[in-house]
Design a binder for these strands. Structure first.
Length: 823
RNA sequence: GCCGGAGUGGCGAAACUGGUAAACGCUGUGGACUUAAAAUCCACCGGUGCAUGGCACCUUGCGGGUUCGACUCCCGCCUCCGGCACCA
């Protein structure tokens, strides 16, 4: 190609120029419009840790492609950004460097916002929000009160997870492998009084509605399903011998009730003390068991030696009146079910081992075939379904059927009832830390717990606080904060000094974008119900049972409160893979961050964005490596040169060659591929590959003699190329679009549409196989019939040589594609 | 243990409904241009063999199967990643 001296690609000027113009013209501002369909594209907002890393770039570049694509497809797009700005790192920075958490946070926000702008991300900045802003947390507090009024926020004493690193309690979801999700410290157990949100009241709906989320990854749905952990079974009451008490157990196997030979209570079970009273040695053993406590990590628990203590007390099996020994065991959890289990050694492996160890009777009540079963011969519990035996009136009943029948039978006798049990626990939301939204409640000696009136919100976080961690809420030390008047009686009162889990802040931020500047209410029904639910949500899979579960819970509660018309916040979810360095996710605390600014400085934002999208399919983890950045940079420059060489070439107006159907086909095929890859497949990597092929094709076309090129067709092709490039390389596309002579932004243009007629080929190359092996290719008219294709294949010389006189047994023809000759 | 997902050239990957395995790109090799280099352009780039302008055979983690035809479907394994796990 000629043009050695086209203008240089000065990306930093080009990018700065357009970023400024976009901002001035507000081209990414979202305004409800009756004539268009809305599209709400959202990426999980970041914690303002200081700087962006390549993981952020990947997440936001993806969202940016999607939102630009849908805007060009004619949707009114809402694409906002904000800051998950409360949280511990701000306090830690304050402790380490003496900066106030607020100052540190706002400085980080300013810096990261600037970085996002340098990446050319098309956000509606007029809707920006920061959860640490009083104008935001005022409404977080308002929502807390809404939960409180609805009986969904309560205070309770329980064993809780305590992170010694963060000096605060954690919700169950925030403990990963026995360690704090944030700082990795091993979590300890403490008994404390804390605030909870009653997420368990929504367990059934959170589970059932997962089925509706057909545009969520199956993986995430399964993770939530496991986390909620539904078990269907029954509660059964066992009267205690010689006491006016009964012990209730939860079981999923009521069909094995006749095989109960013992029962086990959690060491903390309220009845234990009474059962062992007067037996000092047993009391001592129980105390020891309690003190040892339950190991924190699941894995430790699983390998824990099962220790049992015989209480000497007995209960009565309500099914057959048989006495059963009551034990206390370290493997029974007070938190799950009723804190008591019935022991059926013949049909539960744990019970089997326990019984063998302590010499407890084993009574088989389920038989694989209905025949007799010898307890002595059993080497393991039989946990499969079978036929009930030794079960009085139920003998001969298939066990699966027996489950319901036994429960009904117990129900008639007042000794049991059906029960659904969930693994999910209520959400512990109070935190003994400073940098969070204060819980808007007051403790009055006379009136008890009193909510702060909504018109008095926000309860402001005081600025002057000693936030060095000491296991108590830093706000406790701020007298002017703590001491207040009771809103109800006017008497002396004290404020709640715990702040809220920051996951509360992020459980509703996606709603607030719809009415971010509304200072009258948290949720403006009209705006929120217009923009929501989110049409495409994009973020990391690490939030599968954290943010994503909490947000679903919030949405359902607000729906029930009449604020929302919808029950699920995120229509479609895409979980992008991590960008790793040294095998670990990039994070500031790990110190393995690759700052995108270096790449932007060297190659420009368009290259940075396109590179991370091209490197791998977006759902796969990506180990960071710079090899390949050059390739994208080369590609972008190739586009630049292609355009300017054409634009500045003298022969542009005079190339009057005939239009090339091949070029048309290439252009339209590319439109088809790119559209499909973004819209249906969410695969920018293959979309970019398709655009590269188009550019390669255009170079080839340009290498023809000028007289054989069609100027008009070429211009059309270049216009299409720019439009297809716009979501991926927004600055480059904008610059070239302007140079095309266009006045209006390329990002406000209509996405190109392919013409199926242009895809049709006149001739196709058909593969000829003999016994499934590729032997030759023949060119036939695209419309060739099966017979014609077969004939063409059989008349190929190579095919004849291979056949060597043999007659085909069978010929398979795939029209337009392939002929397979079987001999 | 249970439940998901992944495994394809030197590397990142592609192959969408069972129909040409390796598109697109990186790296590398050779060449053109250049005083030279960079940039750019052209060619080659899975393996083995034949004694090499070509042809044959093999190749998508491993072993079987279905099919005219399998990266794709079925059965059995291996490795890695993720979730749940004494949940009664």
């Amino acid at each position: 190609m000629g043009g050695q001296t086209v203008k240089p690609y000065a990306f930093s000027e080009i990018e700065a120029k357009w970023q400024q113009r976009w901002q001035e013209q507000g081209i990414y501002r979202a305004t409800p419009r009756p004539d268009r369909q809305k599209f709400y594209c959202l990426e999980m907002f970041p914690y303002p840790s200081g700087r962006l890393h390549m993981g952020h770039v990947r997440n936001y570049a993806l969202g940016d492609v999607v939102s630009r694509f849908y805007r060009m497809r004619g949707y009114e797009v809402l694409h906002p950004m904000g800051w998950d700005a409360f949280g511990l790192p701000a306090e830690n920075a304050a402790i380490k460097r003496g900066v106030h958490p607020a100052d540190w946070t706002y400085a980080n926000i300013a810096y990261m916002r600037r970085q996002m702008q340098k990446l050319g991300l098309g956000y509606d900045w007029e809707r920006e929000l920061a959860t640490c802003d009083p104008e935001y947390y005022r409404w977080t507090q308002w929502l807390f009160l809404l939960f409180y009024e609805r009986g969904l926020a309560y205070r309770a004493a329980a064993r809780v997870n305590w992170c010694p690193g963060c000096q605060t309690v954690l919700a169950n979801e925030q403990v990963v492998d026995g360690a704090c999700w944030r700082c990795g410290s091993p979590v300890e157990q403490r008994h404390l009084e804390q605030w909870y949100l009653r997420i368990t009241a929504y367990a059934d709906r959170l589970l059932a509605d997962l089925e509706r989320l057909d545009r969520w990854p199956e993986r995430v749905r399964i993770m939530q399903q496991n986390w909620i952990g539904k078990s269907t079974g029954a509660e059964i009451d066992f009267p205690v011998e010689g006491l006016e008490e009964k012990i209730t157990v939860f079981t999923t196997r009521p069909d094995t009730l006749f095989g109960v030979t013992f029962m086990v209570l959690a060491p903390e079970h309220p009845l234990v003390d009474r059962l062992v009273a007067g037996h000092p040695d047993i009391e001592g053993a129980v105390r020891e068991l309690r003190e040892k406590g339950v190991p924190v990590t699941e894995r430790e628990r699983a390998t824990l030696e099962k220790i049992g203590i015989r209480t000497g007390a007995r209960a009565i099996n309500p099914a057959n009146g048989q006495p059963v020994e009551i034990w206390v065991g370290n493997y029974v959890l007070m938190e799950y079910g009723t804190g008591a289990v019935m022991g059926v050694p013949a049909h539960d492996q744990r019970d089997f081992e326990f019984a063998r160890r302590y010499g407890i009777r084993i009574v088989p009540v389920i038989s694989p075939d209905g025949g007799p079963v010898s307890a002595e011969a059993m080497e393991a519990a039989y946990e499969e379904p079978g036929i009930m035996i030794n079960s009085g009136p139920f003998d001969g009943t298939p066990s699966e059927e027996g489950k319901a029948r036994v429960v009904r039978w117990l129900e008639e006798r007042g000794a049991g009832r059906p029960k659904v049990q969930y693994r999910l626990r209520d959400w512990l939301i109070s935190r003994q830390r400073y940098w969070g939204a204060p819980i808007p409640l007051v403790y009055c000696d006379r009136c008890g717990i009193v909510p702060v009136p909504k018109e008095d919100l926000p309860v402001l976080l005081p600025r002057q606080v000693d936030f060095r961690p000491g296991g108590l809420s830093p706000l406790l030390g701020v007298e002017e904060f703590v001491n207040t008047r009771c809103p109800r009686c006017g008497g002396k009162a004290r404020r709640e000094t715990d702040t809220m889990d920051t996951f509360i802040d992020s459980s509703w931020y996606y709603l607030r974008y719809a009415c971010a500047r509304d200072d009258r209410e948290a949720i403006d029904r009209q705006s929120v119900n217009y923009w929501l639910p989110v049409d495409q949500y994009i973020g990391g899979v690490e939030h599968a049972v954290l943010h994503l579960l909490y947000s679903r819970f919030f949405t359902k509660v607000l729906h029930d409160a009449g604020l929302l018309d919808f029950e699920e916040p995120f229509q479609a979810l895409f979980t992008q893979g991590m960008v790793t360095l040294g095998g670990a996710a990039m994070s500031k605390s790990r110190g393995n961050i690759v700052d995108p600014e270096e790449i932007i400085g060297r190659y420009g934002a368009d290259t940075a964005r396109m590179f991370i999208l091209f490197a791998a399919p977006p759902d796969r983890d990506l180990e960071w490596s710079e090899s390949g950045v050059e390739g994208i940079y080369r590609f972008i420059q190739r586009v630049w040169r292609l355009f300017w060489d054409w634009k500045e070439s003298a022969d542009r107006a005079t190339s009057r060659g005939p239009a090339s159907p091949q070029l048309d086909r290439l252009v339209h095929r590319t439109i088809q591929r790119v559209t499909h890859d973004i819209q249906d497949r969410f695969q920018p990597n293959t979309a970019i590959a398709a655009i590269m092929e188009l550019v390669n094709g255009l170079y080839e076309y340009r290498s023809r003699p000028a007289a054989e090129q069609c100027g008009e067709q070429l211009e059309q092709a270049l216009r299409t190329l720019i439009l297809l490039l716009a979501p991926f390389a927004p600055h480059l596309a904008e610059e070239l679009w302007e140079a095309m002579g266009e006045k209006e932004s390329v990002h406000r243009q209509a996405w190109p549409v392919y013409d199926p007629a242009k895809l049709v080929e006149e001739e196709v190359t058909v593969v000829v196989q003999i016994n499934g092996k590729l032997r030759d290719r023949v060119v036939v008219p695209a419309a060739a019939s099966r017979e014609e294709m077969e004939k063409a294949a059989l008349s190929s010389e190579r095919v004849r040589a291979f056949l060597n006189g043999r007659t085909p047994r069978k010929v398979i023809v795939v029209p337009g594609k392939l002929v397979n000759i079987v001999v």
